[in-house]
Design a protein around this nucleic acid. Sequence first.
RNA 1: GUCCCCGUCGUCUAGGGGUCUAGGACACCGGGUUUUCAUCCCGGCAACAGGGGUUCGAAUCCCCUCGGGGAUGCCA
Length: 481
Amino acid sequence: MRVRFAPSPTGYLHVGNARTAVINFLVARKFGASLVLRIEDTDMERSTRESEESIYRDLAWLGIRWDEGPDIGGAFAPYRQSERFDTYRSYTERLLASGHAYPCYCTKEELDAVKAGDADSYVYSGKCRDLDETARRALEAEGRRPTVRFRVPDGESIVVDDRIKGRVEFNSNNIGGDFIIVRSDGVPVFNYIVIIDDALMEISLVIRGDDHLSNTPKQILVARALGLAVPEYAHLPLIMGPDRSKLSKRHGITSVSSYRDEGYLPEALMNYMAMLGWALDSGDEIVPLEDIIRHFDLENLSKSAPVFDFQKLKWMNGAYIRDYAVPALTDLLLPHLEAAGYDPGNVDREHLEKIVAILKNYCEILPDIGRFAGIFLDEVPEPDAEADAMLGSPEGRAVVQAAFDLFRTELNANNFSTILVQRVKETTSLKGRHLFMPLRALITGRQKGPELDQSMPLIGFDRCAKRVAHYHDRYCGTETL
RNA sequence: GUCCCCGUCGUCUAGGGGUCUAGGACACCGGGUUUUCAUCCCGGCAACAGGGGUUCGAAUCCCCUCGGGGAUGCCA
């Protein structure tokens, strides 16, 4: 069994394509099939090497590995369509010789003029279908460069036994008439060469977006004319945005690289994409890759188009972060700490991991670490708006004053983290949230974050004392510790 | 317009003639963990697009309508 992922390098890899890649990868891993990466770069204007490189990078980041491709070679090289033009040319000559294709001298302008009349029901007229040799020569003498059209047979049935959609039947009479297979500049078009490459590369199962389903009869017709093998097909429903139109940038982040930059974990994105349109019998949604592979089944994929739920992906990402091994997570967090203005290189690794162990429960995406790191890494955090309001309130000032008094008298490095709360409670008679909210603001500079009894030992006595003194200055006067 | 695909809570889905007063997850709302937020736990809200058949019985099968999507490119 051989499958393939065939992106067009005309931009970044977006989640729609990435999902197709994921499903191909899953199937390949499940059945021990080879995954071929083929670059479909026949749109010479839009295809770029940078896009191609970024696709490799994004696939690799997701954890998708391929067995053959332009970058690693393989028995069916080359894998870039732009390097296979000689092959396509020989097939075109065969089609021309056998009468399955013919040169068409209509210009783009002429065609557009016809289309302008009734674009809705436009079908190529077949004007150049039966030109004789002298007519062709005359048109060439005018300087016209012909395209090559495929002669679509009349009234032929084409059945696609799709692994996802089931049996789909088309009639050759309504697939839009004779279609162009080679442009006037000699570059062949996707609909034509895709089936040649699939056959030549011995692809047995084509898994692709269902926007290609309507193109499939054209491709099968080409295969028939050329005597090429037709692969099996599995057409994946397209991913939609919240408004039910094809997922695009205006709906939110759609490029895989942006998810990486925004601090999503590849495992989470992969898991989420695998679960779009599919579910395990157990109902589990957060599932290790190996289990997804073990249970994955194309036939169980939903036939309807799923809406990409950014919120659920975020939730899943948070779940992955919480489950992540602390040392590895710490490594992943380093760049985000730097981005937030901290210098994690200056922090003792063991201490850092203790901080991460606590804060990972507060992060849905990696950069969230920046919102809480200051609790431990700032000498005296600048209170956020909520904390500032709390500390400035009468209740807040009472707590600040009480804590201040305690820090200059009975508290020390050994007892402060265990008795501070209790002693402030006793001296102020505050309790519950009225006690904890001001204390939290005082110690951490925020109203949200990990529990105080966990945090204080890690912040340390000196820093806590410094913060208390500082805030006492600010909110209660000028007396110092 | 034509051809093709699809239609269960707001979203992802389970369910494939009786076990469905339709299950799970995200989101949302309450409650608990006698400290907030988060985590975690418990509970709640919330759906078979509509209409006709077939059948003792339909979310499940058939037809129509409606709705959504895709194709209809010298893009892929």
